[in-house]
Design a protein around this nucleic acid. Structure first.
Length: 191
DNA sequence: GATTGACGCCGAG
DNA sequence: CTCGGCGTCAATC
């Protein structure tokens, strides 16, 4: 197992309506991490560089970042999931916010399958991998290195409340509404 | 072990 | 309806 911690990555960024997006790419041109939009460029970049301290900024992958920004605004995009580096297990001493265990990988893979405009509950995800560890599912989703592309915003609580989100509940609600989902007094209709 | 969760369920007000 | 409390279990301390 090689040490990804020493791998040099390229970070491409894009500014859309005063929101800064940043995405990190490995040497084999795969996405290692995506930052949710931030008000400051530095903030967005450090979301990535915190995990990959050796990096350089480049426009090389700007088109991909634009695609991700487009998805964020709620437009359907046929994104190539093969671009994601699903093997990432950063061997950092303190960083825990990566998919390191098989449990976390299973969760992320299930979430990745949720289609545009659809939602699933944390319970649904738990059932699909045969566990009752609902809370652990939430924790694993909270570590999602590929927000927006792996649509963790489409996972809500089974009582219809939207649930937590790393970028804040407000952002999660916005993203769901932008995809055409309807909320009634802060809750989503679970069929 | 003990504690901590982006949760779920039920029962009491 | 809200809320507290307990169930459950993976990860972390």
């Amino acid at each position: 197992m090689y040490r990804r911690k020493n791998q040099r990555i390229i970070i491409s960024t894009y500014n859309h309506n005063d929101l800064h997006f940043a995405v990190g790419f490995s040497e084999n041109e795969k996405i290692v991490r995506i930052s949710l939009p931030k008000k400051n460029l530095e903030e967005a970049v450090s979301e990535i560089s915190n995990y990959h301290p050796k990096f350089s900024i480049s426009d090389k992958y700007k088109d991909t970042v634009i695609e991700i920004a487009t998805m964020y605004t709620g437009k359907p995009v046929n994104f190539n999931m093969d671009l994601l580096d699903m093997e990432i297990s950063a061997e950092y001493e303190h960083e825990t916010s990566t998919i390191n265990t098989s449990f976390e990988r299973q969760v992320i893979l299930k979430v990745a399958k949720i289609q545009y405009g659809n939602i699933k509950t944390y319970k649904d995800i738990a059932k699909s991998i045969n566990t009752h560890a609902y809370r652990a599912v939430g924790t694993a989703i909270g570590k999602n290195p590929f927000p927006i592309v792996v649509p963790c915003h489409r996972v809500v609580r089974s009582d219809g409340a939207v649930g937590g989100f790393r970028g804040g509940t407000e952002m999660k609600i916005k993203m769901l509404i932008n995809e055409g989902l309807k909320l009634e007094s802060g809750r989503i209709d679970i069929e």
